[in-house]
């Protein structure tokens, strides 16, 4: 039974490798890394927050706008929709045309909600 999870393990390792490579590449090419030019930077400059060359103001710990919450709520709802697509896709061939129509109805009803959100300009940033 456990052998079936071999693929999951491969994906997991590939994912970890992907993230590690991003860090290693950054380290290799950074000024003080493996291939860096070894400038003598001041410690304050090295530890400074770098954001698009614009000087940062204040901390990142501030109260976020309530508007973000609406996006999170909508995300969770459509996330749940995606969860139901998964077992449907696995048994798609077995279910046939009937299963296809079923899922079209399901998504059509949810698209009404999406259209409503769009109409009310809920996805528009203000």
């Amino acid at each position: 039974m456990l052998e079936q999870y071999g693929y999951v393990l491969v994906f997991l390792l590939a994912g970890i490798f992907f993230i590690l490579m991003a860090f290693i590449t950054g380290w290799v090419f950074s000024p003080n890394g493996l291939l860096g030019l070894r400038y003598k930077y001041k410690k304050e400059i090295l530890e400074d927050t770098y954001e698009c060359g614009v000087e940062t103001q204040g901390t990142s710990w501030f109260r976020f706008n309530i508007s973000f919450y609406l996006y999170a709520l909508l995300f969770v709802i459509f996330d749940i929709e995606t969860v139901f697509l998964y077992p449907w896709a696995v048994s798609f061939k077995k279910l046939g045309v009937f299963g296809f129509v079923e899922m079209v109805v399901f998504i059509a009803i949810l698209l009404v909600g999406f259209a409503y959100a769009w109409k009310k300009e809920a996805l528009k940033w203000e």
């Binding site: 909600g113 409503y116 809920a122």
Partner: peptide, 23 residues
């Protein structure tokens, strides 16, 4: 099948509810 389709209505209610509460 029927509970599954009803589920889409529940999620639709959640979308509308979220919009009414947050906007």
């Amino acid at each position: 099948l029927f509970p599954f389709e009803i589920l889409s209505l529940v999620l639709l209610t959640a979308v509308v509810g979220a919009l009414v509460l947050a906007k």
